[in-house]
């Protein structure tokens, strides 16, 4: 009956800020980290901006895809493997091709992976097997497929691809506009789509309360399939970004597994509850960049790379413990 504060209830702007306080918080954190980083190194300029942005692209894409799936009440442990698949297909078939063919291949990869993962979503709704189990299994299948397509690291891509994701045809230096736009445009599209369309909202509905969504006449199965399809498309995009960054394809299982786990970490830190239905894509974009930025910051602080890994782990666990504590205190107060 009683709301925590009446001002919050009556003032729409305040309410929106309050409801998105976590998203706001992670963006402020990102801003603070960038500022801090700029004082840590002698020169902070376009080169660093380009570098941070382009290096974050694969994880950010993957995390956006994961966020959409988690919001719809699922979780996809095969996203990393799909990234591998996209990466090796691009590396194997793009090198030396004319621009139209490259574009066609890129679009084909995105559409193909979207369909493939939509099929996985369909299998999940059909079989009644938990998402985590199905995607665990399909993760094996996709990494096997990736290994089959490109048995050892190699291949290449077109300069135009590299320019699109890194700002330079050679992948070194270059303008920060292309990667920055490639970061923000897909993120904004997915974020706006998910909060402002009937289908987008139905993902939240299904993740928040599946039974209620069904009883209200929503198509639960369709929502899940769409979510997985988007996840697949984002993984395809992530694989393309990867090939643009490194200039080659790499089918190693561990890369995929790590990417998956990082995407889950980014999603959770970004304020998307693993139970579904809560959070938004914007927060995840910030945490994706933060996770990538930790590396250069720790290097700039001359922290050993193994310790950097420890710090990253402690940070994730620490933030989540803090979140748990806040939730606990809030629950006790109300």
């Amino acid at each position: 009956m009683m709301m925590p504060s009446m001002t919050m209830r009556n003032n729409p702007t305040l309410r929106i800020l309050f409801r998105n306080s976590w998203t706001l918080g992670v963006w402020l954190l990102l801003g603070a980290l960038v500022l801090w980083y700029s004082t840590l190194i002698p020169v902070f300029g376009p080169f660093q901006i380009t570098s941070i942005t382009k290096n974050s692209l694969p994880l950010v894409y993957l995390a956006i895809g994961q966020a959409i799936i988690v919001i719809a009440g699922g979780i996809d442990l095969s996203l990393g493997a799909l990234l591998l698949l996209s990466n090796v297909i691009a590396a194997r078939f793009m090198a030396g091709q004319p621009l139209p063919a490259v574009v066609l291949i890129a679009l084909g990869i995105i559409a193909g992976l979207a369909l493939l993962n939509a099929l996985v979503g369909f299998i999940i709704t059909l079989s009644g097997v938990p998402d985590i189990v199905v995607t665990l299994a399909t993760g094996y299948i996709w990494s096997g497929l990736a290994l089959w397509i490109l048995p050892s690291p190699g291949g290449g891509t077109a300069p135009e691809m590299r320019w699109l994701f890194t700002g330079s045809p050679s992948g070194v230096g270059g303008s920060y506009w292309p990667p920055l736009l490639m970061l923000l445009i897909p993120a904004a599209l997915v974020a706006i789509w998910s909060r402002n369309t009937q289908v987008g909202l139905s993902l939240y509905a299904v993740g928040s309360h599946k039974t209620a969504a069904q009883l209200a006449g929503l198509n639960v199965r369709q929502a899940k399939i769409v979510a997985y399809g988007i996840g697949g498309a984002m993984a395809g995009l992530a694989g393309l970004a990867m090939v643009a960054l490194t200039g080659t394809g790499d089918p190693r299982f561990a890369i995929g597994a790590n990417a998956t786990l990082n995407s889950v970490a980014a999603v959770v830190l970004g304020g998307v509850a693993l139970t579904g239905g809560v959070g938004n894509v914007f927060g995840v974009v910030a945490t994706g960049v933060i996770l990538i930025m930790l590396n250069p910051i720790l290097i700039a602080m001359r922290v050993d790379s193994n310790n950097a890994q420890v710090i990253q782990g402690v940070l994730i666990a620490g933030v989540m413990m803090f979140g748990g504590l806040v939730a606990f205190l809030r629950e006790r107060r109300s």
């Binding site: 009937q198 909202l201 139905s202 939240y204 509905a205 993740g207 928040s208 309360h209 039974t211 209620a212 969504a213 009883l215 209200a216 006449g217 929503l218 239905g277 809560v278």
Partner: peptide, 23 residues
């Protein structure tokens, strides 16, 4: 049109969103 004992409304969305979902 059925009204169940447990309201078939999505807890994490606003009332307006819920209406929109049901068109």
């Amino acid at each position: 049109a059925t009204v169940f004992q447990d309201p078939a409304l999505i807890p994490d969305l606003t009332v307006a969103h819920n209406l929109r979902l049901s068109r």
